[in-house]
Structures are given as structure tokens and as C-alpha cells.
Computed example of a mutant assay.
Amino acid sequence: MDERADEGVLLELFSTSFCGACRQTRAMLDRAASLVPGAAVVEHDLALEPELGEAHGIVRSPTVVVRSSDGREVLRAAGVPTVPQVLVAAERALVR
């Protein structure tokens, strides 16, 4: 089960420990989360949980998935998205 804020936004990062772009993405998500009340960042290491990546159709790291509190996916970005891209997706996740 995913960790979710009850009324917030889930920012999921699918990463690997040996990925340089993943470090950039982690920092960007932390910044975005600090601007969105109720946002939670959850990171999944694909080297440790390959079955999770397969179950979610993740084919590249980093991949960011932004979800609403009910689990609806509003953004999937392979690579490093920008803070503005994540903020726009977070806003869509909050609109019901």
C-alpha cells in the first residue's frame, strides 16, 4: 500500500541508487513538496523492488508519478521534471 496524505498529493520517485539524475529528481521533489501543503514524497528503489517497477510499468529511472489522495495518476514523467511541471500536476491532483 502506498503512503499517502489523507487529503494531499503523493509524489512518487522510482529511482536507483546509482542514478545521478535520481539525486537531482529527489531534490526537485523535496522542493516541490515544500510548496504544496499535504504533499508527501515516497521513493522506491528499483534495484531493491524490481517487481514494484514492473507492476507500475516503470521502464526508466528516474520516473516521477504524481497521484491524488485517491490514487489517481495525474503525471508520469521519465527523467527529471521541473518544479513547475510537478506543481501543475499537484494542482490537478488536488482538484476533484
Score class of each variant (00 low, 15 high):
Asp2Lys: 09
Asp2Gly: 05
Glu3Asp: 10
Arg4Glu: 04
Arg4His: 14
Arg4Thr: 08
Ala5Met: 10
Asp6Asn: 06
Asp6Pro: 15
Glu7Gln: 14
Gly8His: 09
Val9Lys: 09
Val9Trp: 08
Val9Phe: 07
Leu10Gly: 08
Leu10Glu: 07
Leu11Asp: 07
Glu12Ser: 13
Glu12Ile: 12
Leu13Gly: 01
Leu13Asp: 00
Phe14His: 07
Phe14Met: 04
Ser15Arg: 13
Ser15Met: 14
Thr16Glu: 10
Phe18Pro: 01
Gly20His: 14
Ala21Cys: 11
Ala21Phe: 14
Thr25Arg: 08
Thr25Val: 09
Thr25Met: 10
Arg26Asn: 11
Ala27Ile: 09
Met28Lys: 10
Leu29Glu: 08
Leu29Cys: 13
Arg31Leu: 13
Ala33Thr: 02
Ser34Pro: 03
Ser34Ala: 14
Leu35Met: 15
Leu35Phe: 03
Val36Cys: 01
Gly38Met: 03
Gly38Gln: 05
Gly38Ile: 07
Ala39Phe: 00
Ala39Tyr: 03
Ala40His: 06
Ala40Asp: 06
Val41Phe: 03
Val41Cys: 08
Val42Cys: 03
Glu43Lys: 03
Glu43Ile: 04
Asp45Lys: 06
Asp45Trp: 07
Asp45Leu: 09
Leu46Asn: 01
Leu46Pro: 04
Ala47Gln: 14
Leu48Arg: 14
Glu49Arg: 11
Glu49Cys: 02
Pro50Val: 07
Pro50Ala: 10
Pro50Ile: 09
Glu51Pro: 01
Glu51Val: 01
Leu52Lys: 07
Leu52Pro: 02
Glu54Val: 13
Ala55Cys: 08
Ala55Thr: 08
Ala55Asp: 12
Ala55Trp: 06
His56Tyr: 15
His56Pro: 02
His56Asn: 14
His56Ser: 09
Gly57Leu: 15
Val59Phe: 13
Val59Gly: 12
Val59Arg: 15
Val59Tyr: 10
Arg60Ala: 15
Arg60Trp: 13
Arg60Pro: 03
Ser61His: 12
Ser61Gly: 05
Ser61Phe: 12
Thr63Arg: 02
Thr63Leu: 01
Thr63Gly: 00
Val64His: 10
Val64Trp: 11
Val65Asp: 02
Arg67Ala: 04
Ser69Trp: 01
Gly71Glu: 00
Gly71Gln: 04
Gly71Tyr: 05
Gly71Trp: 06
Glu73Ala: 11
Glu73Gly: 05
Arg76Ala: 11
Arg76Cys: 10
Ala77Met: 12
Ala78Ile: 11
Ala78Val: 14
Ala78Tyr: 11
Ala78Phe: 12
Ala78Pro: 05
Gly79Lys: 11
Gly79Asn: 10
Val80Ala: 06
Val80Ser: 02
Pro81Arg: 06
Pro81Met: 03
Thr82Trp: 04
Val83Trp: 00
Val83Thr: 12
Val83His: 01
Pro84Val: 03
Pro84Ser: 04
Gln85Pro: 06
Gln85Thr: 05
Val86Arg: 00
Leu87Trp: 05
Leu87Ala: 02
Leu87Pro: 00
Leu87Tyr: 08
Val88Asn: 01
Val88Tyr: 00
Ala89Ser: 08
Ala89Phe: 04
Ala89Asn: 08
Ala90Asp: 00
Ala90Arg: 05
Glu91Cys: 03
Arg92His: 05
Arg92Gln: 12
Arg92Asp: 04
Leu94Lys: 06
Leu94Arg: 11
Leu94Glu: 03
Leu94His: 04
Val95Asp: 05
Val95Trp: 04
Arg96Phe: 07
